[in-house]
Design a binder for these strands. Structure first.
Length: 724
RNA sequence: GCGCGGUUAGCUCAGUUGGUAGAGCAUCCCCUUGACGUGGGGAGGGUCACAGGUUCGAAUCCUGUAUCGCGCACCA
């Protein structure tokens, strides 16, 4: 530490009041940091040379930050501040996400409250309104990121709908298309009949429920089903080829049967997908409304017929039941089958789970729909390989298994959504021959397949991309891929820090796109924090009313206290309960640090040292540099921030304050001039080191005290060196 | 059904390679000491879910059981 001989100038100025008041300090300090320019690695002094990069997971610009964001911002900020102090050219790129479907759902709720509906709105008008809504929220959320103390580079702030990003996402689509990795296909998709869009496999949620399970006579067979309303046109009856009970029936054999709306011809199909143990071992299939049935139909080249329309109502094929909603039709259909003597029995204790829209809870109706799909298998194989070669590592490591499981069991990814809020799919559709083709800059007006022209034949695809299609490319896009100097300098990034729930939704897609586009993994470490629950360990939810707003906690206890409360004792990957008492305890600690500084400053006002006369190393300092610092540094390097924070806390309070300060008192009061000087020197040294160690965790109070450190006039703690 | 994680002080949770159990809050006692009462000193409180095993030694490693939570998949 540099000490000067003008320490008599230290004054307990008016800012050094008691107790410490975060509200008076934090915004001022954050502003000072912004003005220093050091959040931008380009402005760091030359000794900061080796890059260290974190890309902030783009926050959804449709609401406010929640406890999970607060934890993420804290962890990422700790990492970036620590590395910056170690002399890395630290870059943390902030960003926000338009969050396609999520935001549209939020906005639709708003419309609903106002008695409006998106289905009655012009798409340009709707887009404009959502854009205004999003930009407003984006501003709020960026302010909230700042309240958390995030030392990210705002000059590089990104938004998923930035023009350049939109273009790049569309170019990726074209590249995938050209490489044969994107195709237009009719496949089973998850259809939400409320939101009128298809959803990917990760946008559905399974709900456990108890239903009736019906057994019906179907010709010579008894079939079981939980969904009688889909059965009108079931003309294939399927059983396992090895099922001896039905050995007399041959694949392809036709039988005449009596069914819901009269007699029909059924065809026998033998397929190993049937579970002989379940029900009667015989089932009829509805390929249009079931993924399994669809696959059986594909294998055997069978007809597929739509029974339920896009709004969830029965089509004319249902005869007298046409136009009815499922819930209404089901009992009536069962009643009719019963009256025809076709009902064998009802098992009303059937436990199963049904997929629902993760936003509105509406039961998903599988539908066959023509959509854009990404072929996942070849992409997933590369991702698996990168992980196997440890180019991408997980903290904690057990998430590797989940990643692998997910990548080994991919299904083709439906990337098109029937909503306006998102990045447009840059494609056109020829109505004459049903050909779809990519058109990046809206320049093709002639069908490349059949040559048709004219606005009545060639129409633009109105779908938008799944949000994960753009956010999956985020590490690239946030750095200005493909031709920016940032991309060359900072890619691949060092750490991707995000919530553990994104291990399959997001992480694999980023790995895939990074490897596919840049031929290099997007990040070396994936650090996954657990979910933040309420004080009782229950998941926070609006409906339960147990949501804790981090901004309220900041107002009550200060950001530093909140950060410590989120970090100490919180191991990666594990859920945590947010205890307000704990945060209160760290508010006390913030004050403690403040008062330690007050004591040190008050008792060193007359301290003078001739820099030529090196002070002898005090035993207190030996302990600090010999044990405490290496220990904490090792925890930081091992990404055990929960331990590092606790150890720093413990040292500062229970060693520095409780023991060292107390021991110093009698010497300061009645020691010899030389003894006093030695103690004063040691106290200043320990204070300076403590501030450095605490800084990544508690940036505000430490920076504020630093600004009062004798001999450190004009220096900024954020770029001070991590102690050794 | 498959997979993952938890089970440690009254509560919420730590415990890095196995070496006599820790933190915060809560409880009890003492201290109106000029850095801080948002404080200081001290105390109580745990057969580390259970049962085996490995070891000189296990909260920690192995096997099994129970239980809670989460995720995935579906059997129509």
């Amino acid at each position: 530490m540099t000490t000067t001989n003008n320490l008599g100038q230290i004054k307990m100025n008016e800012k050094f009041t008691k107790p410490y008041n975060p509200a008076d300090t934090e915004d001022r300090i954050y502003k000072m940091w912004l003005e220093s320019g050091y959040f931008n690695p380009d402005n760091l002094p030359a000794r900061f040379s080796e890059p260290f990069t974190i890309i902030m997971p783009p926050l959804n610009a449709n609401g406010h930050i929640h406890a999970g964001h607060a934890l993420a911002m804290t962890l990422e900020d700790i990492m970036i501040r620590y590395k910056r102090m170690q002399g890395y050219k630290a870059l943390w790129v902030p960003g926000t996400d338009h969050a396609g479907f999520e935001t549209q759902v939020v906005y639709e709720k708003k419309l609903e409250k106002e008695g409006r509906s998106r289905f009655k709105m012009d798409s340009a008008e709707l887009y404009g309104e959502i854009m205004a809504f999003t930009l407003e929220n984006k501003k709020h959320i960026e302010g909230e990121i700042q309240k958390m103390g995030a030392s990210c580079d705002w000059s590089r702030n990104k938004f998923t709908l930035d023009e350049k990003i939109v273009k790049e996402v569309q170019r990726t689509f074209k590249k995938l298309f050209d490489d044969g990795l994107v195709y237009r296909g009719s496949r089973i998709v998850n259809w939400c009949s409320k939101h009128q869009t298809s959803l990917s496999d990760v946008e559905t949620e399974n709900k456990e429920q108890k239903d009736s399970f019906y057994y019906f006579k179907y010709g010579p067979f008894v079939i079981g089903t939980a969904r009688p309303e889909t059965k009108f046109a079931d003309k294939y009856v399927v059983m396992h080829p090895d099922d001896k009970r039905y050995a007399q029936y041959k694949n392809g054999q036709k039988i005449e049967i009596e069914w819901i709306n009269g007699p029909m011809t059924a065809t026998i199909i033998k397929d190993a997908a049937v579970d002989m143990e379940f029900g009667t071992g015989v089932m009829t299939i509805t390929p249009w409304h079931s993924a399994i049935d669809f696959e059986i139909a594909e294998r055997h080249g069978l007809d597929k017929e739509q029974i339920i329309d896009w709004r969830g109502k029965l089509l004319p094929i249902a005869g007298e039941f046409a136009g009815m909603k499922i819930a209404e039709a089901r009992p009536k259909i069962v009643e009719k089958l019963k009256s025809k003597g076709l009902l064998e029995k009802i098992d009303d204790k059937y436990q199963h789970s049904v997929p629902c829209c993760y936003k509105c809870g509406t039961v998903i109706e599988p539908q066959v729909k023509e959509q854009w799909f990404v072929k996942m298998k070849p992409l997933a194989e590369k991702a698996l390989q990168a992980v196997a070669e440890e180019k991408v590592k997980f903290v904690p490591d057990n998430f590797r298994k989940i990643f692998n499981y997910w990548m080994e069991n991919t299904i083709d990814w439906n990337i098109s959504r029937q909503i306006v809020w998102g990045i447009p799919v840059p494609a056109k559709h020829c109505l004459a021959c049903n050909e779809y083709f990519v058109d990046l800059d809206d320049s093709i007006s002639k069908c490349p397949k059949c040559g048709a022209t004219g606005a009545d034949k060639i129409v633009k695809d109105t779908d938008t991309f799944d949000t994960w299609f753009s956010s999956g490319q985020w590490p690239l896009l946030a750095l200005g891929y493909p031709d920016s100097s940032d991309f060359k300098t900072f890619y691949p990034t060092n750490v991707m820090e995000t919530g553990s729930d994104l291990i399959f939704k997001w992480i694999p897609r980023m790995v895939i796109f990074g490897l596919y586009l840049a031929k290099k993994e997007p990040f070396k470490d994936v650090y996954l924090h657990g979910m933040v629950n309420d004080a009782q360990g229950k998941k926070m939810s609006k409906s339960k009313g147990n949501v804790v707003n981090p901004l309220d906690l900041i107002a009550k206890y200060g950001t530093d206290a909140l950060r410590m409360g989120l970090i100490v004792g919180n191991t990666p990957g594990n859920e945590m309960s947010l205890q307000e008492n704990k945060i209160k305890g760290y508010k006390n600690f913030t004050n403690k640090v403040w008062n330690i500084a007050r004591f040190v400053f008050e008792n060193t006002q007359d301290f003078e040292v001739d820099e030529k006369n090196a002070m002898p190393v005090h035993p207190w300092l030996v302990q600090l540099s010999g044990t405490i610092i290496p220990d904490i540094t090792s925890d930081m390097d091992g990404q055990r921030f929960h331990l590092a924070a606790e150890k720093a806390y413990h040292y500062v309070w229970h060693e520095f304050a409780d023991k060292i300060l107390e021991e110093s008192k009698p010497i300061l009061k009645s020691g010899s001039a030389e003894e006093r000087r030695a103690v004063q020197h040691a106290l200043l040294e320990i204070l300076a080191t403590s501030l450095r160690i605490l800084h990544p965790f508690m940036p505000f109070v430490t920076e504020e005290i630093w600004s009062h450190m004798p001999g450190e006039k004009g220096s900024v703690l954020i770029i001070e060196k991590w102690p050794k």
